[in-house]
Design a protein around this nucleic acid. Structure first.
Length: 427
DNA sequence: TCTGGGGTCCTAGGACCC
DNA sequence: TCTGGGGTCCTAGGACCC
């Protein structure tokens, strides 16, 4: 988005408040004034919390069992994650945003950068308030919007807009208020500064974002690498992050899960790995790529004394996105790393080193005469699964009973993604 | 008993070549 | 015993994000 760089454009960031928790509320008005928590897969820990839940002290990533007692004491409402629902509400929100800006970069499931043309919009802050109201009214989703000269600064603005009610969800950073905001912002709250770098910077006496931008470029590059330097330029008001819209193809596709209970048998591990591989291969085909490399790994829990974890990487004889071929390679790798006697808690596979399908189709030295037919069959299966819901057709090696499957005890209905689970209203 | 899953980018260091 | 300088490519691992 080149016109994002010109003087007449400002950046903005729309971010849904407590996204997953808010999604659960959209179709369930009873939750509006209650603390709501969405759990990770396997109902392991908290991954989203409403403001009320945050106020109770439930932390991001905190294990469920540590705060389970609050369910009774404070009527905390918990949910297993319902990603189809969240994905659907996300697309609807982004669709509305597209109606307000020419340049929208969907950055994650719950946030998007967009540009505002200063030549056409007189009052950018008022404009963004209208966007916010539109999303609230049509989707029921509360959002915050930050406006500034660079994407990193919109993050700062957004955070403040969210934290301080007096901004009513929208804040624009300009020449007169930016410095004051950066002086208030702890250095580890900056987008791009994690726990490690945060601690390091504080050890050097750098406490706030303002302290950081006073340092020399050389110092910053030495302490935080080139990406840290780019971040500081952005904080000083010079855009230098490119987020390209066109190339959304993934460079790695990962599929992994923790098991609902520990797995010891190789046969069960193989089922799980086959099932992850099938999912990853489906994603690979949907972006029109083939993989040259597949990595498989398995590990026990980190929280036990006898930790065991290993991975194995296979370079494939030729790039492929053929599910049975990939499963075969994953199983071979698994055979190399599997050690009996351990209670495995998680396994996964990763595909990488992609080439476009079209490149391979031009290969004159085709080694597999049936490749075309196999390809068509897979497309057919993908199509049926897409139309009729995932798992309509499966590969037998992915297992039938799946005793290793995740725990999901608190799942909400698929209000928007499944005809059988539409919200019922009594009249 | 109980601690997510899926990504990106960067650097260091080894292997290899001239 | 001494003992180059560059360049490239690859991989593992760190750090961060949502």
């Amino acid at each position: 988005m080149n016109n994002g760089q010109t003087h007449t454009n400002l950046f903005a960031l729309l971010d849904c408040n407590n996204f997953f928790a808010s999604c659960e509320r959209v179709f369930n008005p009873k939750l509006w004034d209650k603390p709501v928590v969405v759990l990770s897969n396997n109902d392991g820990c908290a991954i989203a919390r409403s403001n009320e839940a945050k106020a109770l002290g439930i932390k991001m990533g905190q294990p469920f069992f540590e705060w389970q007692h609050l369910l009774r004491e404070h009527k905390v409402q918990v949910f297993s994650p319902n990603f189809p629902l969240y994905g659907d509400l996300s697309s609807r929100t982004m669709a509305i945003l597209h109606g307000w800006s020419q340049n929208v970069e969907v950055y994650s499931i719950d946030e998007a950068f967009f540009t505002l043309n200063k030549d056409l919009i007189e009052d950018t802050e008022t404009y963004c308030r209208q966007i916010r109201d539109h999303v609230k009214k049509w989707i029921g989703m509360p959002v915050s919007i930050g406006i500034a000269k660079t994407r990193t600064l919109t993050k700062v603005a957004n955070e403040l807009a969210k934290k301080h009610p007096e901004y009513k969800g929208v804040l624009e950073l300009n020449n007169s208020n930016t410095e004051a905001c950066l002086k208030k912002l702890p250095v580890d709250d900056i987008w791009g500064v994690g726990r490690r770098s945060g601690a390091k910077l504080k050890a050097y006496g750098v406490e706030t974002a303002y302290d950081l931008i006073q340092k020399s470029d050389a110092w910053i590059k030495q302490k935080l690498t080139i990406s840290g330097l780019r971040m500081v330029y952005e904080l000083r008001g010079t855009p230098c992050l490119e987020i390209d819209e066109a190339d959304t193809d993934k460079k790695h596709i990962i599929s992994s899960r923790s098991f609902g209970r520990p797995v010891e048998k190789l046969s069960e591990l193989k089922e799980a790995v086959a099932s992850y591989t099938a999912r990853a291969a489906e994603k690979l085909r949907s972006q029109g790529s083939m993989a040259n490399v597949i990595t498989v790994y398995a590990r026990t829990s980190h929280h036990t004394e006898t930790y065991y974890g290993k991975s194995h990487t296979t370079i494939l004889p030729e790039p492929t996105n053929h599910t049975p071929t990939l499963i075969k390679a994953a199983h071979a790798g698994l055979g190399k790393i599997y050690q009996p006697g351990y209670r495995y808690k998680k396994a996964g596979i990763a595909l990488s080193k992609f080439v476009p399908e079209t490149v391979h189709q031009l290969n004159l030295f085709e080694t597999d005469p049936d490749r075309q037919k196999k390809q068509q069959l897979l497309k057919l299966i993908d199509g049926l699964n897409l139309e009729n819901g995932r798992h309509c057709l499966n590969f037998a090696s992915t297992g039938f009973k799946k005793p290793w499957r995740m725990k999901q005890e608190f799942r909400s209905p698929n209000y928007t993604a499944d005809w059988n689970q539409l919200l019922k209203i009594k009249i």
